[in-house]
């Protein structure tokens, strides 16, 4: 009896002695945005990236989905206090919370996607959404038979107008007379999670003649895709590859590789090569693009594919400069 106890104690001490070695491992954590972890789009992309990281390294990733806005800062603080490092905040609306908490925990590393926080311990990850949206616009205009395409945005903010503007530029590069309808779902965070209204907006655009609708609206987009599918029209997904949602009706998805960004950010942090400052991921870095897979193969003609590849290489080479709405809050289209 005593011997077993002693053995158990010994084992316990050994486990304790071992733990500092494990403590050297990082304890990453994610604070999701309002759409929720499983929005099949933006947040879920981040989650998939984190899962890939966990699978590759065996490191567990913690996460939290805030129920209201006041929980954001509290959650970041709780993560930091519990020794989680690095802490990834998803979405532009977390910027002020990250700025406040990063100041109070200068030794903890923070990352924010879609927002900019200027602090020595924060990495801000941005994307050239206008470039990927341009390619989506090219495909939309080529697939459209009516010469009219639609765009449904989530919350009316410069970031989403950047999607819309890139999309319009792409569509008009194919057909200068292409008509682009543009609607935003709302002006508050609720606009990311309103599939019913998304569907209504898509329907009204299709009634005006649009036969391809691109949604950049988080979970609201699910309603847009459903409406387009029901009407026998085409839709374009966003952020994650959403082609599988309605095979045969999803022309493509404008993928914003938050999954790759997440995985890379965590991997870098693990390797000790965390870099503060702004990281911008565009076509060149593989941060954005259009998804072609088994679900939309039949919709993508060889000409379409060639044209998109051409446009992509032109953008990469700088031959085509896609205007970024956020530089001057204007769209030339």
């Amino acid at each position: 009896m005593l011997r077993t106890l002693a053995a158990a104690l010994l084992a316990a001490t050994a486990a304790l002695a071992l733990s500092p070695a494990q403590a050297a491992d990082i304890k990453p954590a994610i604070l999701f945005d309002n759409g929720g972890k499983f929005d099949k789009s933006f947040n879920e992309g981040v989650w998939n990236g984190a899962q890939a990281f966990s699978k590759a390294t065996g490191v567990e990733v913690r996460d939290f989905e805030p129920q209201n806005d006041s929980q954001r800062e509290q959650a970041l603080r709780t993560f930091a206090r519990r020794g989680n490092d690095p802490i990834l905040a998803v979405g532009f609306s977390q910027a002020s919370s990250v700025a406040a908490v990063a100041k109070d925990f200068p030794k903890t590393h923070f990352m924010i996607i879609d927002g900019v926080v200027d602090a020595p311990n924060v990495q801000s990850i941005l994307f050239h959404e206008e470039q990927g949206s341009y390619l989506a616009g090219v495909m939309a205009a080529m697939a459209s038979k009516t010469g009219k395409v639609g765009f449904v945005g989530g919350m009316d903010i410069p970031l989403i107008r950047r999607f819309a503007c890139g999309y319009a530029q792409g569509a008009k590069s194919v057909n200068p007379k292409e008509q682009v309808f543009e609607n935003m779902t709302g002006t508050t965070g609720a606009a990311w999670n309103d599939p019913v209204r998304g569907g209504e907006l898509a329907k009204s655009q299709m009634e005006q003649g649009a036969d391809v609708v691109f949604a950049a609206a988080g979970a609201t987009g699910l309603g847009v895709y459903q409406a387009a599918t029901d009407a026998g029209k085409l839709a374009i997904g966003v952020d994650s590859n959403q082609n599988y949602l309605h095979p045969g009706h999803m022309l493509t998805s404008m993928v914003k590789r938050v999954d790759i960004a997440t995985q890379k950010a965590f991997t870098d942090a693990k390797a000790g090569t965390f870099t503060p400052g702004i990281t911008v991921l565009g076509l060149k870095q593989g941060g954005v693009g259009v998804a072609i897979d088994q679900y939309n193969q039949s919709l993508v003609t060889p000409e379409m594919k060639a044209r998109v590849e051409q446009a992509a290489s032109d953008i990469k080479d700088g031959k085509v400069d896609v205007h970024d709405y956020m530089t001057d809050n204007k769209c030339p289209m």
Binding site: N68, D69, S70, S96, T188, G189
Partner: peptide, 13 residues
Amino acid sequence: GAQHKLLIGFTGG
């Protein structure tokens, strides 16, 4: 007291 700014939906239900 807490947020030090006015934001959408601060009443939180």
